[in-house]
Design a binder for these strands. Structure first.
Lengths: 356, 356
DNA sequence: TTGAAAGCGCTAACAT
DNA sequence: ATGTTAGCGCTTTCAA
């Protein structure tokens, strides 16, 4: 156990009793119902403005906090949305979560809105199932799932029977749920096209795990355009065990050892690209002169490199906005005629994918 | 509006009515109280094992999900902890959140445990206050606040009157709350000591915003040890507007332009260090040969650099564990005699802070 | 415009 | 070992 410094303080808490609506009503000599109406956003107009203001002032003064549990129980709605994210260290996922949260919070300005509850799927065997059950027990009005896998289909379907479930970032083919995703096939094609434009003839891709739809689609789009543009792709299917920089380094070693070297490399995400760049340096090669390289996601690191990386911007804003819109609509009306949308990514050309 | 592809699907949802305890009881011909006991973890022994199993099987089969809102209302406790984080893109903060969540979830194995609710403080003017109010209305049993600032003192104190509030990562001097933090002063000193050990005589630090206690303490510790070790620190107080790589680049330009150049540089976090390294490259200097450089936080990027960076490991595990322990203890007993703890950081020597 | 009364689904005290 | 009863704090008819 490493050392630490301790500061010992003992302290008694004054047990502040929370004031409830009944007490507040008694203090003011009005009925609880009047308080409820005065404090609500949709029924406030039913109360005379004088009493309404009197009640609101008194509530603030007394530090009254409505019990959302009780309100939810009575109302049958919690005005809450569960957001389930697979990995909080993933920059794209967190950006999407953030924007969804901001989007939903914006509604609070007018009306009750939806309060987001964020949780990460644990490593446990049934992380997704457990979290979904927790959300349902918390009586969320809807669930947004970020980056679910095909293995989660059953659990999601079960949840979807009770509340609207919206998928974001990654869709699922086994079940038909409203979703907001990125067109990864187009993303892959975009990169290949960029290489073709800059006259590359022999190129390759460092693929993320092909069990993940995202990477499978990027690979497919890239290969498709390679064929269409008459470029030679080598080696076919250089797949990694995880989309992280260390795997990028390993892939680079393989590429550099091969007899036919490509002139351009597409890494399925910026982490893999970074690994490739490091390996290049280790091999005495200069980035970005000795290989053209393009990443994916436009993560912070791709921007702060001494030589910023050409990469693909994930349509974070659009995915987030659509996911939020879907949830809002479905919470308002379960029979809403939703449509899943697939948004186009965009190439950010910073020059590292050109040199032939 | 960038292009997108739309897949239109209309779908009717079968409105699955949630089964409640009363119905389940009726189906089984037992009383609701028996169901409640059978399904609980602490009172299950009061039910005969045969009916207990019968009830549990039926509950699972029927897809019964206890209404936590109702249970909370009745019980007066939600078994829920609000975790408030200022920035979800901050790697250290997210690691702490994760570990706290994992720690609290571990309790679920035996007994009800505490379910964490994670939320990010919005950019709004009163983000902290608003979030605290939301948490209190959700009847959380405790609140953990990550990286609060002195400006949040009042709001936190108000919340602390109702439920235990624990600070993590960053403490507050204005009020006396249980906390789990890092000894940043020692961290700064650690780095200076490292430089002294490797015979540096003229050194400098690129400081994060001095309004933030974390950076102020790192600066103080560093400067203290500089004086004690007889090293010359130049320029005094090179403070940045934000602890990000772009600011690190600016600071580097200033350092490189000065007449007396230091041989070693302490960047208050890895982002600043990265900016410095980039600027070095831009100036035709070689990292890590032309300057010794040490960062802080041991973030992923410091590890994946072609030449990994010497940095300081934040005591994530200890801070998390203590924060979780404080919450658990205080939820169990408000009068628990808590102690705030300050944990020591640790230098990770990867060799970039030696060369003189 | 306000009040009275019922009840959301659960748990805990008490009774059997 | 199980059942009976009351009530957590709120919102929503319905009535005045």
């Amino acid at each position: 156990m490493p050392p630490f410094q301790a500061k010992t303080i003992v302290r008694m808490r004054k047990p502040v009793k929370r004031i409830n609506m009944r007490e507040l009503a008694a203090n003011l000599g009005v009925d609880r119902a009047t308080i409820s109406r005065a404090l609500s956003s949709d029924k406030a107009h039913l109360v005379s403005s004088s009493t309404r203001e009197r009640i609101r002032a008194a509530a603030t003064l007394a530090g009254y906090r409505p019990d959302l549990m009780a309100a939810t129980l009575r109302r049958g709605r919690s005005n809450t949305v569960g957001i389930m994210v697979s990995d909080m260290m993933n920059e794209v996922l967190i950006r999407v979560v953030r924007e969804i949260v901001a989007d939903l919070n914006r509604d609070h300005l007018k009306g009750p809105g939806l309060t987001p509850l964020i949780a990460e799927t644990g490593d446990g065997s049934d992380g997704v199932g457990h979290l979904l059950r927790t959300f349902l027990s918390q009586r969320v009005d809807a669930i947004i799932s970020l980056t679910s896998t095909e293995g989660d289909a059953e659990a999601l379907e079960e949840a979807a029977a009770e509340v609207p479930v919206v998928l974001a970032v990654r869709g699922i083919t086994a079940i038909d749920l409203p979703s907001a995703t990125c067109d990864d096939e187009a993303g892959g094609a975009l990169v290949a096209e960029h290489f073709a434009t800059h006259h590359h003839r022999v190129i390759c891709q460092i693929q993320g795990p092909q069990t993940v739809a995202t990477f499978k689609n990027r690979a497919a789009g890239f290969s498709r355009l390679c064929r269409e543009a008459g470029m030679r792709e080598i080696p076919q299917g250089l797949s990694t065990a995880a989309a992280v920089s260390s795997e990028g380094r390993l892939a680079a070693d393989a590429i550099l050892a091969s007899s036919t070297r490509p002139t351009a490399v597409f890494a399925h995400n910026d982490g893999l690209a970074l690994g490739f760049i490091e390996a290049m340096r280790n091999h005495g090669l200069a980035y970005p002169d000795d290989f053209a390289i393009v990443g994916f996601n436009n993560t912070e690191i791709s921007r702060v490199l001494a030589r910023p990386l050409t990469t693909v911007e994930y349509p974070v804003a659009q995915v987030s906005r659509h996911a939020a819109a879907l949830v809002r609509a479905l919470v308002g009306n379960r029979d809403f005629a939703w449509e899943s949308q697939v948004f186009a990514p965009m190439l950010i050309d910073r020059g590292t994918g050109r040199k032939c």
